[in-house]
């Protein structure tokens, strides 16, 4: 079981949830015959993260069910009781993803995260656990030392790139190809650095980033509370096309 964390340092709104959830769904479909539960998606955002909300399908549906918050608060002995299965039927057959979320705010420690990940590995035996964590200050992340790989997700924003770079060093896990999200080709150059954004990100992380262009259709799908790769075609959405390319890279890198 590989553990992969999408993060953006202390910055929110970089699109890491969109990337984490969509790649989780793409890889769950891609590996559907390789394991019963190929991908587990952990949304560790307090008070119901967007990723979990999209998987549950509606806000009301998440209320009243056991969640990881109950486990963290000591009200649930077995963390697996807070895990759910989302299944889709497509024209090419069904596939599923296992997910868990935090319905309310509760302190997540390294020990808790380690217990949750151990349980997942022992009981579900997935190929991959994708962790989507909210922005936290460097040094405070319970994910430090607990994951196998990290994916920095940044936007064309000088401060976002700087804080995410610092955070990458703190996490200590091997870094996969960074992602430059919401890139607008009409504004390719950073006025602060007097250099192209791609070069700025490359200089910060030591590798050329995977570029995901800004795409209005991703926003439209989000308004519809739908997972983008399940409803938009890569031919109509450059954002979805770029996400699929990144999932393809991950499937090779994590195989």
């Amino acid at each position: 079981m590989k553990k992969l964390l999408f993060f953006s340092g202390a910055k929110g709104g970089t699109g890491k949830t969109t990337l984490a959830l969509n790649t989780a769904v793409l890889l769950a479909y891609h590996w559907r015959d390789a394991a019963h539960y190929p991908v587990v998606y952990l949304d560790l955002t307090p008070s119901l993260g967007t990723g979990a909300l999209l998987l549950v399908g509606d806000i009301i549906g998440a209320w009243g069910r056991p969640s990881l918050s109950d486990f963290l608060a000591g009200q649930l002995a077995e963390p697996l009781r807070a895990f759910y299965l989302r299944r889709w039927t497509t024209e090419k057959g069904p596939f599923q993803i296992v997910f868990a979320y935090m319905a309310r705010d509760a302190p997540l420690t390294k020990r808790h995260l380690s217990l949750i990940l151990d349980t997942v590995e022992r009981r579900l035996r997935p190929r991959l656990v994708i962790i989507d964590m909210p922005p936290v200050a460097a040094g405070e992340s319970p994910a430090a030392g607990a994951v196998d790989y990290v994916v920095p997700v940044v936007t064309p924003d000088a401060s976002a790139i700087e804080t995410t770079k610092t955070f990458t060093e703190v996490l200590g896990a091997p870094r996969l190809r960074p992602v430059l999200n919401m890139y607008i080709p009409d504004y390719p150059v950073s006025a602060v650095h007097a250099a192209p954004w791609v070069k700025v990100v490359q200089d910060a992380f030591g590798e050329e980033p995977h570029v995901i262009p800004y795409d209005k259709l991703l926003q439209a799908a989000r308004q519809a509370l739908e997972i983008e790769v399940l409803k938009l075609k890569p031919t109509e959405s450059p954002g979805v096309k770029a996400i699929i390319e990144y999932a393809r890279y991950l499937s090779t890198r994590l195989a």
Partner: peptide
């Protein structure tokens, strides 16, 4: 319209 679309197989 996106909401009403059927789920498509997310091929990589």
């Amino acid at each position: 319209e996106i909401k009403r679309r059927p789920v498509a197989a997310p091929e990589i």
